[in-house]
Design a protein around this nucleic acid. Structure first.
Ligand SMILES: [Mn+2]
Ligand SMILES: [Mn+2]
Ligand SMILES: [Zn+2]
Ligand SMILES: [Zn+2]
Lengths: 140, 140
DNA sequence: CTTGATTTTGCAACACTGTTGCATCACATT
DNA sequence: AATGTGATGCAACAGTGTTGCAAAATCAAG
């Protein structure tokens, strides 16, 4: 019955994050959505919680490989939960999809970012691959 | 001898853009660089020209397929000239490279953005693929 | 050329996002 | 209880992009 409340704490502890009230709220918010969220989105849902506190919680999550950030060109960075065993390495990177209509961003976790043959002496460390168009929901 | 001054105007006219003084200056600035530029970079080089005027010139260029914009995650959008026959279609899209050291962004025009097998009902219209790492110049 | 319409530019102000500094609070340890 | 560490709230700030409006330049007739 209280298993719903125990689970988020477990997730945080598994990543060595101290489960403070705000961090739990932020994590629960992220868990409640199927798409990536802006700081502002979380702020709206968690009415009364400071932007800065959410910001620092997210930054903490990022440092501990619990969330990854997506730059979808909308102006605001979006955040989404990583998969269980994600360590945010190159192999963990996946393609994202930004819908121009609903403006939501989805993780296409099944689509790994392809490796490219770079010019000589270029070293790859990370990547951001966002496909833009119309999502299934908005595609009548 | 004045062929240097005629050329930028020709480029603009070829794209049906009226070659006003500011537009010529902005285009010349873009032509003088090998990497993509922020609005702020152009503003610094064209000292005395208003940010807004550069902004509107760039937007005009974009609309007429003379420049394309790149979202490299640095916080500021970057702009680079399109290739001659570019119409900013899906096939014209290419990969970009952002160097974490010099913070410059390069067009890898030889690397076309690969097409991905999207989930059903998803329609692709555009894409932004940025690889991040260390560029040849900064790679000792 | 003169007039009037259209476009371009300069200037100011604004909105949004992300970020930092600092004081306060909660909590754990001694 | 005293103390130290970390979390949070509050305020202020910087960077970027964008819009409104008036002045200036350009263009198109008459
Ligand atoms: Mn994702
Ligand atoms: Mn490019
Ligand atoms: Zn959609
Ligand atoms: Zn570099």
């Amino acid at each position: 019955m209280n298993s719903q409340k125990i689970e988020p704490a477990k997730i945080l502890l598994a990543k060595n994050i101290k489960p403070t009230p705000i961090r739990l709220k932020v994590l629960e918010t992220l868990l409640s959505q199927t798409h990536a969220m802006r700081l502002y989105d979380i702020e709206n849902i968690l009415d009364g919680v400071e932007r800065t506190s959410i910001f620092r919680a997210i930054k903490n999550f990022e440092k501990n490989n619990l969330v990854h950030e997506i730059d979808d060109g909308s102006g605001a960075t979006k955040f989404a939960l990583c998969e269980d065993r994600c360590e945010c390495n190159l192999e963990d990177l996946h393609v994202h999809f930004f819908c121009k209509i609903c403006e939501q961003t989805f993780c296409l976790q099944q689509l790994q970012i392809p490796s490219m043959e770079l010019p000589p002496e270029f070293v790859v460390e990370s990547a951001n691959f966002v496909i833009k168009g119309i999502c299934a929901n908005c595609n009548t």
